[in-house]
Simulated assay, not measured.
Amino acid sequence: MRPARNNDLTDRRSAAADAKAALLTAYRAAKTAAEPVQAARQAERISLVETREARRAERERLKIEERTRLETLATQKQAAIEAAAAAEIEARQSAENARILRVLEDAAARKAERDRRYAARKARQT
């Protein structure tokens, strides 16, 4: 007689179940053995993330300080430009006033000279 296939099928099923159970047991054992290593890796990742965040925060702080410094410099430069422009306008105005004053003084001197000549001529005629 031929051997019954059911026995072979049953043997294969039990062998497969035993193999799955062995794999599951081996996986659980490896997972348990790797827990300290995994925890160390997780702690290392956390410290790397914290370090990265600290560096990013420092870069942001430096950017803000640099932006503030540049804005302050720009404000000072603008104030200096405005002060120089005001000084130039004042210098031009004072030069214009001095020129007008000289023109008026020259006109007064010419008029005084003309009046003196007129008075001298009248004095000679009399």
Rank of each mutant, 00 (worst) to 15 (best):
M1P: 06
R2K: 15
P3W: 12
R5S: 03
N6G: 00
N7E: 07
N7C: 01
D8Q: 14
L9F: 02
L9I: 04
L9R: 06
T10G: 12
T10R: 14
D11H: 08
D11F: 05
R13A: 09
R13K: 09
S14C: 10
A16V: 06
A17H: 03
D18A: 14
K20I: 13
A21R: 12
A22T: 09
A22K: 11
A22L: 07
L23I: 14
L23N: 12
L24Q: 08
T25Y: 10
A26Y: 01
Y27P: 06
Y27M: 08
A29P: 00
A29E: 01
A30I: 08
K31S: 12
K31V: 12
A34N: 05
A34P: 01
A34V: 02
E35G: 00
V37M: 00
Q38I: 04
A39F: 13
A40K: 01
A40D: 14
R41S: 13
A43Q: 06
E44M: 09
R45N: 13
R45H: 12
L48M: 08
V49K: 13
E50I: 02
T51C: 09
T51Q: 12
R52L: 09
E53A: 08
E53D: 04
A54I: 03
R55C: 09
R56H: 12
A57D: 06
R59P: 15
R59L: 15
E60Q: 14
R61Y: 07
L62A: 13
K63R: 15
K63S: 15
E66F: 10
E66D: 13
R67P: 15
R67N: 15
R67W: 09
T68F: 13
R69E: 15
E71P: 10
E71S: 11
E71C: 06
E71L: 08
A74E: 14
Q76F: 03
Q76M: 07
Q76I: 05
K77P: 10
K77Q: 13
Q78R: 12
Q78F: 03
A79I: 03
A80Y: 02
E82S: 01
A84D: 01
A86I: 03
A87R: 11
A87H: 04
E88Q: 07
E88D: 06
E90P: 01
E90K: 03
A91G: 00
A91L: 00
R92I: 07
R92V: 05
Q93T: 02
N97A: 09
A98C: 05
R99P: 01
R99S: 08
R99Y: 03
I100P: 00
I100W: 00
I100M: 00
L101N: 08
R102P: 00
R102S: 02
R102T: 02
V103C: 11
V103E: 15
L104V: 08
L104K: 11
E105K: 04
E105F: 05
E105P: 05
D106W: 07
D106S: 15
D106K: 12
A107V: 04
A109N: 10
R110M: 14
R110Q: 14
K111S: 11
A112Q: 03
A112P: 01
E113W: 02
D115E: 10
D115K: 02
D115S: 04
R117H: 09
Y118L: 14
R121P: 04
K122E: 09
A123Q: 11
A123N: 11
Q125Y: 11
T126A: 15
